[in-house]
């Protein structure tokens, strides 16, 4: 008996993401020690901005798909995703039950299922559950963990990636992230201008 050739509609999207990561990495060699302009904001202002950024990242709209588990969470109470949804090898679900089985490119008003392009779990290298502000900051700024993004790319991700925009437009009765995306972008810029400082591990919860 014969079945079709293995392929999914997510492969091109994943390949594009991987390619982007490679391009970013090659354009920013040693991005961890990336060349940064001299800080134009104080470290104190930067740390204050970071605290605001961390509050956003900890919101269920972000954290539910930045899990340390092999499954996503859902809801404001962050319960394990119903239907035994699993991460899969690439964060897009498993054969027979992909993220795209239910999540499309827009929120669906009739079913209440949320959606945005390329709905998927963040890779385990970007799992944020249980991290202190200090460790969250270090993970976010580590190109080996964040997909090769330098600060400029991080800002671009926050400013333009539709999956980030979803946090303020979650549909149905889900709570959006407090504040606005513009507020977060402003915090990112302040933090970046201060040299993207991370709190010391002892100072952070």
């Amino acid at each position: 008996m014969m079945f079709g050739k293995a392929q999914t509609r997510n492969v091109p999207a994943l390949a594009a993401v991987c390619l982007l990561a490679l391009l970013v990495a090659s354009a920013n060699p040693g991005a961890a020690g990336q060349t940064r302009p001299p800080p134009s904001e104080s470290r104190e202002a930067g740390l204050q901005a970071w605290a605001g950024i961390a509050r956003v990242l900890r919101h269920p709209r972000c954290m539910n798909c930045h899990t340390t588990t092999n499954f996503p969470r859902q809801g404001d109470d962050r319960h394990p995703h119903v239907n035994l949804v699993r991460r899969g090898l690439d964060g897009h679900g498993v054969p027979g039950q992909m993220c795209s089985t239910c999540h499309q490119t827009e929120n669906n008003e009739s079913s209440g299922v949320p959606g945005t392009p390329n709905w998927h779990l963040a890779p385990l290298s970007m799992a944020w559950e249980g991290l202190s502000d200090a460790d969250l900051c270090r993970v976010l700024t580590d190109p080996k963990k964040n997909g090769g993004m330098d600060l400029a790319k991080l800002e671009e991700h926050i400013e333009h990636d539709p999956i980030v925009a979803y946090g303020w437009n979650p549909g149905a009765n889900r709570k959006p992230i407090p504040g606005s995306r513009a507020d977060l972008i402003q915090l990112m810029k302040t933090w970046s201008r201060a040299g993207a400082p991370c709190p010391s591990r002892t100072a952070s919860r």
Binding site: M98, S110, V113
Partner: peptide
Amino acid sequence: GIARCGACTLHVDGSPVRSCSFP
């Protein structure tokens, strides 16, 4: 009607989709 039960599953380019939640 909320993409939970799977009775409406069909394929889009070979991948399973809950068609009650697919415009």
